[in-house]
Amino acid sequence: MRWFFVVLRKYWVFSGRARRAEYWMFTLVSTIIYLALMFADDRAGNEVPTTAFTLAIALPSLGVTVRRLHDTGRTGWWALIGVLPCVGLITLLIFTAEDGVPGQNKYGPNPKEIPLLTDPAPTDA
């Protein structure tokens, strides 16, 4: 759940890189919330909550996808390939599942080498 909120805090950030865990955990939590809202909408007979949630996470989803593509060494414009039926979605799935470029690339430092704010401080033992 932590990754979901990390992405929401960076909702307007399209620069830098995103780890696989950040991208996929955000996608997993978003999908679970979306499915729960769809079920609730079906019971209530309206689609307002699902539509509102979809609109609310559109920009953070795009941002984390662009940052994930940056981590694999690709430009964020590759996210547009997802609009192509089948081939585009499969290609985007493969790109986002790949491991990031080790070390620094033109989009910034490797996010695996940057400690998270919630990680405990290292100790000398």
Results as ranks from 00 to 15, higher is better:
residue 1 M to F: 07
residue 3 W to V: 02
residue 4 F to Y: 15
residue 5 F to Y: 15
residue 6 V to P: 02
residue 13 V to G: 03
residue 15 S to N: 04
residue 15 S to V: 07
residue 15 S to D: 11
residue 16 G to R: 03
residue 18 A to G: 03
residue 18 A to F: 00
residue 25 M to H: 07
residue 27 T to P: 03
residue 30 S to G: 11
residue 30 S to A: 11
residue 34 Y to W: 13
residue 34 Y to F: 14
residue 35 L to Q: 14
residue 38 M to L: 14
residue 39 F to L: 10
residue 45 G to D: 07
residue 48 V to H: 00
residue 52 A to H: 04
residue 53 F to Y: 15
residue 53 F to T: 02
residue 57 I to P: 00
residue 59 L to Q: 08
residue 59 L to I: 15
residue 60 P to M: 03
residue 67 R to H: 08
residue 70 H to T: 06
residue 71 D to T: 08
residue 72 T to L: 07
residue 73 G to E: 05
residue 74 R to V: 05
residue 76 G to H: 10
residue 77 W to T: 12
residue 78 W to M: 05
residue 79 A to V: 13
residue 82 G to S: 11
residue 82 G to T: 09
residue 83 V to W: 13
residue 84 L to G: 02
residue 85 P to C: 06
residue 90 I to M: 14
residue 91 T to D: 06
residue 92 L to I: 02
residue 94 I to H: 13
residue 96 T to I: 09
residue 97 A to H: 01
residue 98 E to W: 14
residue 101 V to M: 05
residue 106 K to Q: 08
residue 107 Y to L: 01
residue 110 N to T: 00
residue 110 N to V: 01
residue 113 E to N: 07
residue 116 L to N: 15
residue 116 L to Q: 12
residue 117 L to V: 08
residue 118 T to Y: 08
residue 119 D to K: 07
residue 119 D to F: 04
residue 122 P to V: 04
residue 123 T to I: 13
residue 124 D to E: 12
residue 125 A to G: 10
